[in-house]
């Protein structure tokens, strides 16, 4: 399938999104310790929505187009259509059985390869991702893409202060430990957006209608530009999951405070007696600290 047309002027922005199970509804099978996926609705990774909104704001201000890129099973098309309904211009799904089992290194390889193809005619100016996903929580794929494509890496961005298209310069606010860095960098860059940095728009009726009918670009590994499939999926992943398990209960059972027939005040005293019996030093330290 051909690559979507790229803008001749304005910004060429790509937002990488992931389709994830709605975490509030994940259940673990009590006996087999496997995830019960059936009937669990999928959503766009919530962190990615901040990236998408920021990308669309830049497009609205400076012109250009926003392409959403997703790696996943064919059903991940839903996530891309939702992104189109929110206002993204183009959508690309890279889907291939050989991507299955990718860890973060293999994922960044596949996405970076597709990004290279997307930038073949008109280079990509900015790649956006969410700060992390809610299912993997690694925050590693964004930096992985930046390293592979030698993009200037700007993570945990809470705001884009200025963008000078002529000079190709961008000034952003980046969350650091204990403060905020104001960084000046250059395009092309990769930005991972911090949660809460903007509010995702409601899609217009026109966008939703367009999304429902839009033809998505769907690429296999080869179509995305992958030359060596050994770099993809399980075989391209240096990490190996050896065991998935639920932690066992502590050996000692919790000491339970009985509440039957007690007034709230008595329950309070009973709990405190137990706490101070278990941690004798705590009572003296608390009294000393508070008086």
């Amino acid at each position: 399938m051909d690559a979507p047309e790229t803008p001749t002027d304005g910004l060429n922005i790509v937002v990488c999104i992931k389709q994830v199970p709605d975490s509030a509804q994940i259940r673990v099978h009590p006996v087999t310790n496997t995830i019960m996926r059936q009937g669990v609705p999928t959503i766009i990774n919530p962190y990615d929505l901040f990236a998408l909104e920021e990308a669309m704001r830049l497009r609205d201000q400076y012109g250009g187009q926003v392409t959403v890129l997703c790696m996943g099973p064919p059903m991940a098309e839903d996530a891309l259509r939702r992104a189109l309904g929110l206002g993204a211009d183009k959508a690309v799904l890279i889907t291939d059985r050989r991507f299955a089992g990718s860890d973060t290194l293999a994922t960044s390889f596949a996405l970076a390869t597709a990004l290279t193809r997307l930038g073949a005619d008109h280079p990509v100016d900015i790649v956006f991702t969410g700060k992390q996903t809610i299912d993997g929580d690694t925050a590693q794929v964004g930096p992985g893409i930046a390293s592979r494509l030698e993009l200037n890496q700007l993570t945990y961005v809470s705001a884009i202060d200025t963008l000078d298209q002529g000079k190709g310069e961008i000034v952003v606010r980046r969350r650091a430990e204990g403060g905020v860095q104001v960084l000046k960098s250059k395009l092309p860059c990769l930005i991972t957006m911090l949660e809460g940095s903007n509010e995702i728009r409601r899609g217009s009726v026109a966008d939703m209608l367009r999304a429902a009918r839009a033809e998505l670009t769907v690429w296999s590994a080869e179509e995305a530009g992958v030359e060596d499939v050994m770099m993809c999926g399980l075989r391209g992943s240096p990490t190996v999951v050896k065991r998935v398990f639920a932690p066992s209960a502590r050996d000692e059972q919790a000491e339970m405070v009985t509440v039957e027939g007690k007034q709230p005040a008595q329950i309070g005293d009973a709990i405190i007696d137990l706490i101070f019996a278990a941690q004798p030093k705590l009572e003296a330290d608390l009294s000393a600290a508070l008086n």
Binding site: L105, T138, A139, P143, S147, R174, A176, T239
Partner: peptide
Amino acid sequence: ATTLGRDLAGSVATTLKTGLTAD
């Protein structure tokens, strides 16, 4: 696994093409 450590670890592991386990 701070904002600094995650930013750096992701880049270094990708540059070295090795495995990285977060958190």
